[in-house]
């Protein structure tokens, strides 16, 4: 097996991912400043564009403080788990159709495994370990509470997430993500692209809400909840270990947007592109661009939601997860089954 090709793809994806994380933080700060009628970072470089570089350099030059009461090994292990999970989830997401380059066909996804969706769910469940272990190992009451809250929250919403995806599986009949995307290339009634958001509106809503809770973003950011828990599970983290948690959170956001795009918004499909008569290479490149634009729009949605919606109370959060989302997701499966059979 050729090992160069996956290595090139991994390097490319990680490079793009890490750059996007840096600029996502910048975008978030600028957008939040705009929403709150402030200016935001604008001093480092033109329009503050070099701010992410300054942030990263600052993190490298900070002291790493490990409290004496903490469990040293687990304390260092937890941010690594978070980071590995966040970065490698991208391995099964197709970011383009097969492209013909240098006289060979290259599939634009890192690992074409037949259980792609299961791998994705498995890794996103492993993300709970990073947060829970960091909360426990810090030996700090705030961290412990943050870790407990987040593990309970993430596993509760994982149920509705897993159940929402079943509707998509019933339509596509495959766990392979590129097959799910190809399936969304048809048209409904000749004019509407057959994206799963139109076929599965209820599933889309439950999935997006559940994924917000999975990524610990506001309105579901109780694990961090600054006013009550200081910093939640990363209260006792400083320097680059804190940086790794930060990196993982934003990398998770990018993965979440990519997954939402792939499952519900047609992935790399560019509607009606076959009618314009472009060359095959141009079509492939435009499809990659379409994927990028969709992911960017979902990311912008994540940011705007964070800065315009207040935080839930914990009992409201658990009630929503168990008493509203779970029944709705099951209902979605029954409705989808009914419509496919009729």
């Amino acid at each position: 097996m050729n090992i160069i090709e996956p290595l090139v793809k991994i390097a490319l994806i990680l490079l793009i991912n890490l750059t996007t994380v840096a600029y996502l933080v910048y975008t978030e700060r600028r957008v939040s400043a705009f929403i709150q009628n402030r200016v935001g970072p604008n001093r480092v470089g033109p329009m503050g564009l070099l701010q992410p570089v300054a942030d990263i350099v600052k993190l490298f030059f900070k002291e790493d403080i490990v409290p004496t009461a903490a469990n040293k090994f687990v304390h260092s292990l937890a941010p690594l788990i978070s980071l590995i999970v966040a970065l490698s989830t991208f391995a099964v997401i197709p970011f383009g159709n097969t492209i013909h380059l240098f006289g060979r066909d290259i599939k634009l996804m890192i690992a074409d495994v037949n259980v792609g969706l299961l791998y994705l769910l498995a890794l996103s469940s492993l993300g709970v370990y990073g947060i829970t272990l960091s909360g426990w190992s810090s030996n700090n009451k705030y961290s412990l509470l943050g870790g407990l809250r987040s593990s309970a929250q993430m596993i509760s919403y994982e149920l509705s997430m897993g159940l929402s995806i079943i509707g998509v599986l019933m339509i596509a009949g495959s766990l392979q993500l590129d097959k799910i995307v190809v399936h969304q290339g048809n048209y409904l009634g000749g004019f509407l692209p057959a994206w799963n958001i139109f076929l599965q509106p209820l599933g889309f809503i439950t999935f997006v809400v559940a994924y917000f809770a999975e990524t610990n973003r506001l309105p579901f950011d109780l694990p961090e909840a600054e006013p009550e828990l200081v910093g939640g599970y990363h209260t006792e983290y400083s320097g680059m270990k804190f940086g790794l948690f930060f990196l993982a959170e934003y990398a998770n956001m990018i993965t979440a947007s990519a997954v939402i795009t792939t499952l519900y918004l047609g992935g790399w499909q560019f509607p009606f592109i076959e009618n314009f008569g472009f060359s095959p290479l141009a079509v492939s490149l435009l499809q990659v661009a379409a994927f990028g634009v969709k992911v960017a729009l979902v990311l912008l949605f994540f940011i705007i939601v964070r800065w315009t919606i207040p935080r839930f109370r914990y009992d409201q959060l658990m009630n929503l997860g168990w008493k509203v989302m779970l029944p709705l997701a099951v209902l979605n499966i029954i409705i989808t089954g009914f419509f496919i059979l009729v």
């Binding site: 090992i3 996956p6 991994i10 970065l87 495994v113 037949n114 791998y119």
Partner: peptide
């Protein structure tokens, strides 16, 4: 074989 890239990524 399809899983090798995943291990590389991890």
């Amino acid at each position: 074989e399809a899983y090798i890239p995943i291990f590389l990524m991890l």
